[in-house]
Design a protein around this nucleic acid. Structure first.
Lengths: 181, 181
DNA sequence: AATGGTTTGTTTGATAATCCACAGATCACG
DNA sequence: CGTGATCTGTGGATTATCAAACAAACCATT
């Protein structure tokens, strides 16, 4: 797997940055390909070289971050909830542009469910309802409950301008998760 | 004169930004072409596509700003000293990265003299030693005196973190110039 | 329903930038 | 000194991006 040409990386970065900026300024439906190409300082045709249309662009952007989060889980498999959450929250902070838009704008409601699916999927392996706290409880319900909780917390964090550092968010939410698994 | 390809503009911008950043971090002599290409996220060969070497790059960068300042003078020909200075100080602020480096680092002493030459050249047309304040004084001496004064002021402004807004700097220095022409 | 102004995809040929490899220069330092 | 390591210029082959143009789709307004 040879590494990709420097030019495509730069173009795609510029395009992704542009659409995120524009989404903070106007409704997704009102954003045109021309807007994006102008903001990204990239030829309009270049966008079509990489993406079908703006929906495809948004999809790919979402998919990328979902995958990145999944990989972070992989490398955090041995960690506690607090440590693992810290890795996530650092990633959230580093990409706050993306996440705050995705969690606050309604044109990207699609992202929420992808995000939730990922969280549930990752929590599932941690869950043991044969004994302990969750003995006798329904797996799906527990997972949906806790998944919604963590996503809600992240959303709240962004809506309020990230009032606490990632470290604190990770420890607090990690502590609550600890007593629920 | 068709407008230049978007790609060359982006490459050159990245390269110029990179060398300025590096000059704040280390001595000019210690900066390599590789450093610049890495920082600019541009292939090393691309730099040679536009510049002979790092000295040529610095020269072109300086020449560009000198020319820009000269053009600003052109369009400010009808203005008072205060108004004209305002245009300049706004340009200084917009490009504070460049000017503060050029006026504080010794590897760019060359810039000072280019800058001074420009100021003297522009002030010359304003000077009338046949009568008024400067009657009987030597033109060259007056020009060098005032030129050094304005450049020194700009240097002080940058060295002290631009403590006053461009507006104030322009009005104050403009007032002093008024009574010297 | 006709109109004129945008936006969209797609194509064209031209060209800037890429990667990689090279040989020579320069540097660091034992 | 000498010797490995890094940096420099340069070349060739390849690719991504470019500007410009086009017809079709999509609008808003009349």
């Amino acid at each position: 797997m040879k590494k990709t040409d420097r030019r495509v990386i730069k173009s795609q970065q510029a395009i992704k940055k542009a659409i995120l900026e524009l989404m903070t300024e106007k409704n997704f439906d009102d954003i045109t390909i021309m807007d994006i190409s102008e903001r990204a300082n990239v030829n309009r045709g270049t966008i079509y070289l990489h993406y079908m249309d703006k929906y495809d662009l948004l999809d790919k952007l979402i998919e990328e971050h979902i995958n990145e989060l999944r990989e972070l889980c992989q490398s955090a498999a041995e960690m506690t909830f607090k440590e693992g959450n810290y890795v996530w929250f650092e990633y959230f902070e580093k990409n706050h542009m993306f996440f705050s838009i995705m969690l606050t704008t309604k044109s990207a409601a699609h992202f929420r469910s992808r995000f939730l699916d990922l969280v549930v999927e990752e929590y599932k392996v941690e869950l043991d309802s044969s004994e302990g706290t969750n003995k006798g409880l329904n797996d799906d319900i527990v997972l949906q409950f806790l998944g919604a909780a963590i996503i809600g917390s992240v959303e709240w964090w962004f809506k309020n301008g990230m009032p606490y550092p990632p470290r604190v968010m990770a420890e607090q939410t990690g502590a609550i998760l600890d007593r629920n698994f």
